[in-house]
Each structure stands twice: as structure tokens, then as C-alpha cells.
């Protein structure tokens, strides 16, 4: 099917369109990051949320993954990973945390607490999370300080997890 119209015809209509959004049909809606349970969840302590984003960021970079590559490896959406790393107010989905725990080989329950999806009723994790967040900077490359902060935190997650999670 051809549609022959003058240049002026097209330009006049393009100018009329201006800055309008034009999407039609459900398929045109983009899945943004879901706000799954944002209201329903009790707000997790700010510091553990910072630590969760930082943790994901550092673990990803330690493996030399881009956000896309981590998304691929963990069967997750890159857009959600971006939000996790950069928005400390974001509460991730349950499945996301499970996939990250699996990918990074850390206990699910502890990561859930860190992400604010399970109540961390031990002060130890919160303290460690604060320490970790304070020691690590979100920079291009993993510095040796970040590396050791990360190592130490992974150790804390792994050692304390099974015992205290119950």
C-alpha cells in the first residue's frame, strides 16, 4: 500500500503532532519497573536498602558484568536492576531477590532482609549493612577496599544467615 502525499502535507501534520504521545494498544505500554507491593511493604530501614543496592552493584562489577549481562545471567529485567542499584527507595520483587541470591550464591533469607522484603529483627545485620554501605563507594572499578568490604559482607551474610534467619 502506497500513500502519496506532498511534502507540505506530511510536514504540516508532523508539526501538528508536536510533542504528543501516540501509543495505542496494550502492547504499546512499556513494562516499567513494577511497584509491586511498594505500599503494602513496611518500609525497610534506609541503611539496609542502601546496602542492598550497593551490594548488587559491587557483586555485579566483581563478576565483570554489565547490567545487561547480570540481567541475562539472573533471568531478570535490566531496568529493574538499574533501579535497584540507583534508587534506595525501591523495594524489589520477591522473585528478583531470589534470582539475585541464586546468582550471587548468598542465602536468600538474608538477602530478603537486606532488600527489606523480610523483617530483619537482628541488629547485627543492620549494623553490618551500615558498615558495608559506608565502606563502599559506587565507582567505576572495584577498589581493593571495596573488594574487602564486599568479601567481609558476603561472609557476614553467609555465616549468620542460616542460624538467625529462623
Amino acid at each position: 500500500m502506497r500513500l502519496e502525499r506532498s511534502k507540505e502535507w506530511w510536514l504540516a501534520r508532523a508539526r501538528q503532532e508536536g510533542d504528543a504521545a501516540v501509543g495505542a494498544g496494550l502492547l504499546a505500554a512499556n513494562p516499567a519497573v513494577e511497584q509491586h507491593g511498594l505500599e503494602a511493604q513496611p518500609a525497610p530501614a534506609e541503611e539496609t536498602r542502601i546496602a542492598f543496592g550497593r551490594f548488587v552493584n559491587l557483586m555485579r562489577r566483581r563478576r565483570g558484568y554489565s547490567v545487561e549481562q547480570l540481567a541475562e545471567a539472573a533471568c531478570l529485567e535490566a531496568s529493574e536492576l538499574l533501579v535497584i542499584e540507583e534508587d534506595r527507595h525501591y523495594v524489589p520483587q520477591l522473585r528478583t531477590v531470589f534470582e539475585l541470591a541464586r546468582t550471587f550464591e548468598v542465602p536468600q533469607q538474608r538477602l530478603l532482609q537486606l532488600a527489606g522484603l523480610a523483617v530483619a529483627n537482628d541488629d547485627g545485620l543492620r549494623k553490618e549493612a551500615v558498615r558495608f554501605a559506608a565502606r563502599s563507594e559506587s565507582m567505576q572499578r572495584l577498589t581493593s577496599e571495596e573488594s574487602s568490604a564486599l568479601e567481609a559482607f558476603v561472609a557476614v551474610l553467609s555465616e549468620q544467615g542460616p542460624k538467625r534467619a529462623r
Binding site: 508539526r15 501538528q16 503532532e17 510533542d19 504528543a20 501516540v22 504499546a28
Partner: peptide, 23 residues
């Protein structure tokens, strides 16, 4: 279904790269 590329969409209040795609 009808959709313009994200860079032609007016989100964030910035000008689309090309106007007239939807039309």
C-alpha cells in the same frame, strides 16, 4: 498496536527526535 521509538516519545518533557511518526 501503535508505538513510536522511545526517543520520539515526549516523556521527561524533552523534545522528540522526530515529530510526526504517530501521525
Amino acid at each position: 498496536y501503535l508505538e513510536a521509538a522511545p526517543w520520539n516519545s515526549p516523556e521527561l518533557g524533552r523534545a522528540p527526535r522526530y515529530r510526526g511518526v504517530g501521525t
